[in-house]
């Protein structure tokens, strides 16, 4: 494997030195481009109290292209589909090489606080979120309890 670019080394160091509150991102022991991520559900959101596991991978041409991020823990959210893929503009066309792992994870945390059913990835969830928000929130809380709190 090619040597790790200075950017990734530095970014990892800084992430360890000043971690983001509510988020942990640890590089894999065997692959420095692969991060094990845990995001805590934001307060006052249906995901409060949950610990959500994600995986984050820095592709070969990072930071020219965006990191690949996916939820591993099941989550009931209009912008996250069954496979844990996330609909977030900065992971697609709004990616800038000046963004970092830190900013990406903060944006994901913000997405948990403010779901956007008008730009859905999981259509059935988004549909319910629009027509019956309280039921959708109940489902989200239920999923959080069932899948994100077991240990």
């Amino acid at each position: 494997m090619a040597a790790l670019p200075r950017r990734i080394i530095k970014e990892t160091q800084r992430l360890m030195q000043e971690p983001v509150p509510g988020i942990s991102a640890v590089p894999d022991e065997t692959n420095a481009r692969y991060f094990h991520v845990i995001v805590t559900g934001p307060e006052d959101s249906p995901f409060e109290g949950g610990l959500f596991k994600l995986e984050l991978f820095l592709p070969e041409d990072y930071p020219m292209s965006a990191p690949k991020v996916r939820f591993i823990t099941k989550i009931y959210h209009p912008n996250i589909d069954r496979l844990g893929r996330i609909c977030l503009d900065i992971l697609k066309d709004k990616w800038s090489p000046a963004l970092q792992i830190r900013t990406v994870l903060l944006s994901i945390q913000a997405l948990l606080s403010a779901p956007n059913p008008d730009d859905p990835l999981a259509n059935d969830v988004a549909e319910l979120w629009k027509i019956n928000e309280s039921e959708a929130i109940r489902n989200a809380k239920e999923w959080t309890r069932r899948y994100a709190m077991d240990n």
Binding site: M64, S65, I90, S96, A98, T103
Partner: peptide, 25 residues
């Protein structure tokens, strides 16, 4: 970095007229 950024936009994404600044947003 600018060179690499522009190269990615041009060669990978085929963007010419509308390459935005490399800064976020």
């Amino acid at each position: 970095c600018w060179g690499e950024y522009l190269t990615t936009k041009i060669m990978e994404e085929g963007v010419g007229q509308t390459i935005a600044c490399a800064a976020h947003a």
